[in-house]
Design a protein around this nucleic acid. Sequence first.
DNA 1: GTCGATATTGAACGCCGTTCAAACACTGGA
DNA 2: TCCAGTGTTTGAACGGCGTTCAATATCGAC
Lengths: 188, 188
Amino acid sequence: MRKPHKELRAEILAEAGRLVEGEGARALSARRLAAAAGCSVGTLYNLFDHLDGVVRSLNRETMQRLAASLNGADPGDAVPRAERLEALGRAYLAYGLAHPARWELLFRYRLETPAEAVPEELGALLALLRRVAGPGPSDEALIALWAAVHGIVELAVARRLPDAAEGAEGRMIALVIDAGVRGIAEGA
Amino acid sequence: MRKPHKELRAEILAEAGRLVEGEGARALSARRLAAAAGCSVGTLYNLFDHLDGVVRSLNRETMQRLAASLNGADPGDAVPRAERLEALGRAYLAYGLAHPARWELLFRYRLETPAEAVPEELGALLALLRRVAGPGPSDEALIALWAAVHGIVELAVARRLPDAAEGAEGRMIALVIDAGVRGIAEGA
DNA sequence: GTCGATATTGAACGCCGTTCAAACACTGGA
DNA sequence: TCCAGTGTTTGAACGGCGTTCAATATCGAC
């Protein structure tokens, strides 16, 4: 009952972020996090719904940062649509490679309660994509484009691409996006 | 010194597969596996290089089964290339959805030694893709096509697709492959 | 000061991956 | 037949994990 809960919660989340960024996703444990935040494991469990709660909050934050990063990378509507989308794709890749531990928590961490595994902040990302792609493509096509690019980035971040693709992720993303844009142009 | 090592190794791997398929990837633990295989944890560690060794062997097997499944789904060179590739994509999706625990081990399990995270059996899969796609597309384009489809399947298996894409994974794969094939046709 | 109400604590439970000294089973020679 | 030597198997032990919960500490209201 010392600190307002809001503050402590925020502090714990900040420590969790530091822990994950600094020592990897596996370093995020109840005991280590409680020690870093200066409280006990019990308090941690009072403020969050198991570790899942911490990870979910962290993932919301990560998703917001990712969306902000893409927004910052959008060159604006003065440039052709394909180029804009490619810039977004490159920013998506860059964020994943720059923050592999957060990425792992966001896309590979196995939550006990699998509901809403990726936070609804994904919506903001898809909304940005919609804004850039225009009203033509269906939601399905939009999600397919995202998922396709996501596949390349996920495999790159997880270092699961064959050697032949080493360093070619950017070109591969451009390829997929160009093909997608052509598909859109022909009305998919 | 009771059983030949080869036999015991195979038995352990079989039990590991049963454990994973039956109770999920997280059920694969040294103690449970040793108990299921009727040996001690020490023997397990004599036969495999940590649990990573078990997972790697399991993943090799999974990759072979996946490749076999795709081979079986290939309608042959009598049908158009796009249709063949779509059949492969659907089989890829079907395998993932049918064996989510093996899939998780193959693509989301975090190995301590990250070298060769996906086994070289991936080569067989890419070779099949090459055979179907013909000599035109570059290795990069081929890998990009695989990774794009993989993205959709991975998100579907992990249940991380937005609700709007529920049940549309097959169509999304077809979309990506059609776009890719058009890209190939125009010489990518 | 007293008293509920609320927040905090940390020991305890059962599980995990991993190691390693001791116990065991087997082989060939005496 | 016994024995020494070789290699295998064992399971207790270590430290860490997520999680719970009875006991403790702290608070505002009176």
